[in-house]
Design a protein around this nucleic acid. Structure first.
Lengths: 331, 331
DNA sequence: GTGAAAGCGCTAACAC
DNA sequence: GTGTTAGCGCTTTCAC
C-alpha cells in the first residue's frame, strides 16, 4: 500500500499519483505543483513500486528464464554472464535454471517459468525435438533456442557451425597423418554430441577411411566422464595418438588422464577439443581447438528474444554463427 | 482469471475452488464429489495458478536473489549450481545477478531484488562493510553473505578459512626453501584478496622474513589480469621461482604466461593457488593448492537463508568452513 | 487537471 | 460444506 501512503501525505488520488510516478505528468497535463508535491512525498517515504502488483496488472514481468544444462561449465557461464548483462540493460531480470541434461528437469522448469509469467525464455534444450509442451508455450511467449536446436522447427534459434567445425577439426588431424582418432563424446543423443560426431564422421568419409567404433565413446559432458573415457581408451588402445574431445569439460578430464599416463614425449597424444580456448596456451604441447563465438551467440539470443517479446509468433530466425578453428603450436 | 474458468465450469465458488486447489479439501471438509469435480475441471483446462497473484496476496514470492561477482568463474558457477539446485528443492527460483566487482552494480541489484519482493538474498558482496542500504534491506528480509564477509557484522555469513589457508600455503612454499614468493592478487581492497594477503604475510612474519613489495601485484581476478601480472613479474624479476595466485582465474592466466616463458625445467616456477583443484593433475609439474569446500559453502548458505526467511532478524550465524590444503606432486 | 472505481488472479476472514 | 466479499498494490477507463 505504498501509493496509498503518498495519497495520505499529499491528498491526491491514486490515478494522479500513478501518473506522476510513471512520468506521465506532462501527458496528462498535471500541474507542476501537484507533480512536485507527489514527487517529493515519494522521495520522502522512499517510494518503490511493487513490481508484483505492476506485473499482475500489466501482464508483463520483465523477467526471463535462462535454462542451461550446467552453469558450472564455463561455456554456459559466459553465455549466462553475457545474456544476463545484456538483458539487465533492457530492464529484465534473469531466472537461472539448470537441467543437468535431464529432460524432466527441463519440462519442470518450463512449467515453473510459465507459472511465473516470464516474458521470455532462452534455452539450451536437452530435448532434440520440438515437443508439444514447448510448442504450447511458444505460442504465447518468446522462446529462443541457444547452442542447440531441433532438427526441424520454426522456433527461433542460434547455434554455431558445429558439424562443419568438427569436420575441419578431424580433417586437420587426418591431414597430420593420424588415421586412428578417438572420439570422446558427451551425452549420447544430445544435439551437440550428435552433430559434432556427424562432422567427425564426414571427415573420415571424405578420405574414404573407416571409423573404428572402439575409439568412439560417449559417457557424458563432465570432466569425470572425460577422465574415465580417456582411461578406458588408453587401456584398450594404448597406441592411440590423437583424441577428439566433444567439449571443454571432457577435455579437462581427458587431459588429466593423459598427463599422468604419458611418459616420453614420443608417446605424446595430440589432443583436440571444442571451446578450450581459455586453456589453450596453458599446455606445452600441440593442441587443436574450435572456439564458439560466445559473444555472438549470447547477443543474438537476446536480440531474438526481445524481438519475440514484441511478436512471439512472428520470429522464426535461424542463425548459425561460424566457428573459429585454431591450431596451437602444431609443428 | 483462471479460477474463474473453473468456477464457470463447476459452479462452485472462488473459495471452495481455491481450497481444493490448495489441497485443503480435507481441512475444510469439502465433499468428495465437489472436490473431484473441481479437480477434474482443473485438469481439463490445464489449470495453473498465477504465481504473481499468489505472491501479491501472500506476500511471498518463492524467489531468491543470488548476487555474485562473476558467474563465468567456475567457482561461482559451482556455488550457483548447488544453491539453485538446493533451493529448487524447496520451491524457490533463483534470480542471477552479476556485479563484476563493481559496487554500484551491487547496489543496483539489491534494489531490483527488493522491488521484486524476493524472499531472500545470497550475496558474495563487493562492499567490505555493512552499508546503510544493506542494513535496511536486512531488517525486512533474509540476507546471507557467502564467500566474503564484513569484518564486523551480525548478518549471517559463511566463508572459508581463507587467512589460515593462505598462511599454510605460503608456509609450505617457505618450507620448501622459496623465500622470494610473488603474490598475484585480485581486486585490491576486496575481502578475499585482503584476507588471503594477510595469511600470506603472516607466514613471512612467523619466519621473520620480509615481503618484497615488488613481488606483490593486485590487478584483478581475471585470467587476463593473471597473464599480465605474470608477464610484468617475469620482466621485473626473472629469477622468481615461486608464485602465489589469489584465485583460480589469476592462476589460469599466470600459468599461460609461465608456460610460454619457461624454457628449461631448471627454470621451473612453483605455482600455488586457491581453488584450482579441477586443474590440478592436468599439469606435469608440482602445484600447491588450497580448495574451498564449495559444497559446504553452498549448503550452509542455503540453510542460513531458509532459516532467515523464517526469522530475518533472529539469524546471526557466522560459519567458517575449513579449507583443504593439497600439495600436488611435491618431490 | 483530477478523482472514482474496476479489475489483474488469488487467499482468507467471516457468514450461513 | 459452501458462498460472499475484501483486499494484496497497481494501472487505466471514464467521468467531471
Amino acid at each position: 500500500m505504498s501509493i496509498k501512503r503518498i495519497q495520505e501525505r499529499t491528498g491526491f488520488s491514486y490515478s494522479t499519483i500513478s501518473r506522476v510516478l510513471n512520468g506521465k505528468a506532462k501527458e496528462f497535463r498535471i500541474s507542476d505543483p501537484t507533480r512536485d508535491a507527489i514527487m517529493e512525498a515519494a522521495k520522502e517515504i522512499n517510494y518503490r513500486p511493487n513490481m508484483l502488483a505492476q506485473s499482475l496488472r500489466m501482464r508483463k514481468t520483465y523477467t526471463i528464464g535462462l535454462i542451461v544444462p550446467d552453469i558450472q561449465n564455463p561455456f554456459f557461464g559466459e553465455l549466462a554472464w553475457r545474456i544476463e548483462r545484456k538483458l539487465r540493460g533492457h530492464g529484465y531480470s534473469t531466472i537461472l535454471c539448470n537441467t543437468d541434461e535431464i529432460s524432466e528437469n527441463e519440462e519442470f522448469y518450463l512449467q515453473v517459468l510459465v507459472d511465473r509469467r516470464v516474458d521470455g525464455i532462452i534455452i539450451a534444450p536437452v530435448h532434440t525435438e520440438e515437443w508439444p509442451g514447448l510448442e504450447e508455450i511458444r505460442r504465447r511467449r518468446s522462446v529462443v533456442l541457444i547452442d542447440r536446436t531441433f532438427y526441424e522447427t520454426d522456433m527461433p534459434w542460434v547455434t554455431s557451425s558445429n558439424e562443419q567445425a568438427a569436420d575441419q577439426m578431424a580433417s586437420a588431424l587426418l591431414r597430420l597423418g593420424f588415421t586412428r582418432i578417438a572420439f570422446l563424446g558427451g551425452v549420447p543423443g544430445t544435439y551437440v554430441n550428435t552433430v559434432r560426431f556427424w562432422g567427425f564422421r564426414k571427415a573420415f568419409e571424405r578420405q574414404g577411411l573407416p571409423i573404428d567404433n572402439d575409439l568412439v565413446l560417449n559417457e557424458g559432458y563432465s570432466p569425470a566422464a572425460g577422465e574415465k573415457m580417456m582411461t578406458d581408451l588408453l587401456a584398450r588402445s594404448p597406441d592411440i595418438r590423437a583424441v577428439f574431445c566433444v567439449n571443454n569439460l571432457v577435455f579437462l578430464g581427458a587431459m588429466k588422464t593423459v598427463q599422468t599416463h604419458e611418459l616420453k614425449t614420443a608417446d605424446r597424444i595430440l589432443m583436440s577439443a571444442f571451446d578450450i580456448s581459455p586453456y589453450c596456451g596453458m599446455f606445452k604441447r600441440p593442441l587443436v581447438c574450435a572456439s564458439q563465438n560466445r559473444e555472438k551467440l549470447a547477443d543474438t539470443a537476446v536480440s531474438l528474444l526481445l524481438r519475440g517479446i514484441e511478436d512471439p509468433l512472428g520470429t522464426h530466425d535461424h542463425v548459425t554463427i561460424p566457428i573459429d578453428l585454431s591450431l596451437y603450436r602444431i609443428a
